[in-house]
Design a protein around this nucleic acid. Structure first.
Lengths: 144, 144
DNA sequence: TCAATAAAGGACAATTTTATCCTATATTAA
DNA sequence: TTAATATAGGATAAAATTGTCCTTTATTGA
């Protein structure tokens, strides 16, 4: 469904949000341990998110990745997916055709559209702060 | 969403069903032209489908791939996806965790379950004969 | 029976995705 | 100001997926 990069990115962002909510910055090391992802690879992914202003970072001792409280309210999963995987999940044809749309559809086009719209809506309607609040119920995990 | 193999396989199967409905066998050449897929690669995919008895084939001149009318009524897209991609689309965690289930869920588990079940239901409820009949309205295409 | 046609399948090649390594640069605290 | 810590980013490497090539085997029709 998502690329590995996107999976790691989503897990990392959720962890960073958790930590930011507690007033902590998250170092690369702590992130890749918490979400069980390869550190160097995770670094690249986080760099992309920083460059696109989805999250913040600071260098040096006591540095790390973090999010401002406001950012957490506004940042959706959809934004993360969009940066890391583009919008191909929503727009690409389920059968892999390059030209597939309402005018010139593949046989499954309309069936897929419904499902993809639901996925997109779910990602758009889920903000990081929502997840952080739900996670306080802590039945949830991000690792393995 | 699906692997390339699965995309080609689905397109090929739909074309074979169309042709079988018209009483024709579909040669590898005709299939890969009709659905715009690499012939040798498509051959491998079709071999898998034959081996799993989703479609039939015959060798020699006038040979090719085909489906019995009954098979067409029973064969679902889900069966094709299952052979080519396994059930990972339905069962895998959206965040890539190996252990993610109702008991020990990732933060997005329940949101994803709903969407994946819908996808699975759609594939299970769509038989090849249904597609062939709809395709007679011929606004639909399988190529490019 | 022979030639042509077509699928079966093993070996291998290219491409894309995933992942690592290493150096540079910035920042903090002592 | 220096040592330690941490992100940034280029160059490579490994693994998985996608795709090709070539030989074998089966079947049909003349």
């Amino acid at each position: 469904m998502f690329s590995k990069s996107c999976e790691y990115g989503l897990r990392a962002v959720i962890f960073i949000a958790q930590q930011s909510h507690l007033g902590h910055k998250a170092s690369l090391t702590s992130i890749s341990q918490a979400v069980d992802s390869p550190p160097a690879f995770t670094a690249k992914i986080l760099q992309q998110l920083v460059k696109n202003n989805l999250i913040d970072s600071s260098k040096g001792p006591k540095g790390g990745f973090f999010m401002a409280p406001e950012a957490m309210k506004n940042l959706t999963l959809e934004a993360v997916v969009s940066v890391l995987d583009g919008d191909s999940i929503y727009t690409n044809c389920g059968l892999g055709l390059k030209q597939c749309n309402d005018k010139k559809p593949c046989p499954l086009h309309f069936k897929f559209v419904a499902i993809k719209e639901e996925l997109q809506a779910m990602l758009q309607n889920t903000t990081l702060i929502m997840l952080v609040n739900e996670m306080n119920l802590d039945r949830f995990h991000l690792k393995r």
